[in-house]
Design a protein around this nucleic acid. Sequence first.
DNA 1: ATTGTCATGAGAACCATTATCAAGTAGCGG
DNA 2: CCGCTACTTGATAATGGTTCTCATGACAAT
Lengths: 131, 131
Amino acid sequence: MTSTDPPPRHTRQRAAVSAIMTTLDEFRTAQDVHAELRQRGEAIGLATVYRTLARMAADGEVDSIRTPEGVAAYRRCSAGHHHHLVCRECGRTVEITPPDLEAWTEQVGREFGFTHLDHELELFGRCPDCG
Amino acid sequence: MTSTDPPPRHTRQRAAVSAIMTTLDEFRTAQDVHAELRQRGEAIGLATVYRTLARMAADGEVDSIRTPEGVAAYRRCSAGHHHHLVCRECGRTVEITPPDLEAWTEQVGREFGFTHLDHELELFGRCPDCG
DNA sequence: ATTGTCATGAGAACCATTATCAAGTAGCGG
DNA sequence: CCGCTACTTGATAATGGTTCTCATGACAAT
């Protein structure tokens, strides 16, 4: 696991997924991406879209989240990984940027000797419209 | 929608779920709760556990999140919960206490008008023993 | 071109969750 | 207590997103 995973091969399908992800600003599910590619005339299987997006997420090429309904959604990587404030009632989501979280994560990692650190932070609440 | 839903009835099954949730500190899935109750000799159906936990979450009696794998998990509503640094390889866990997270959560809530705030934070990495 | 290896994809398998609906039970008014 | 009615329960089926299977096809180094 520490060592080099073999690099992904360059295929037409992978290029198509990569290309479409750079044109989309919002989070899309794998099913959405598959449907969109099909609509554009690309011949690509659903399983391949799932695999490719998962791989791209693992490699840091896209960000992945879970919608409140539990489905995975992907979006092209903006600079810096961010977090969300989610309404429990209606699912409305606001992007938030906690200060110093990256730095604090590194500090905690050093303190306990952990490496390859990552963090997951989500805030939950009830939005103004849901009282 | 906003107003009067009929209040839940007092049943043996609901009492059992409510009771077990007060004894558990960590997030548990509905399946976990169901298995645990069965192991304790409670006769209760899986669907009922799902329904009861969903209802309790809607009523604010428990908090609910989605794990990175996409499954729903529930935890009793309590002040002063803690967080973890988890090794991806061996599962080793260290309790951690991020500074100012409570205060920052409140501040973000006020900023966007969200109420009933809670947060979920976990750190993941590779522990010293796993290199 | 040949060959070993990885990627693809159609469909099946998987699994958490939800819907179905007949039977049981809580709670209330009499 | 009695009975009525609406709510709850639970075994099972259905749903739907995601992953697995494995035969076939494509990539890339020789």
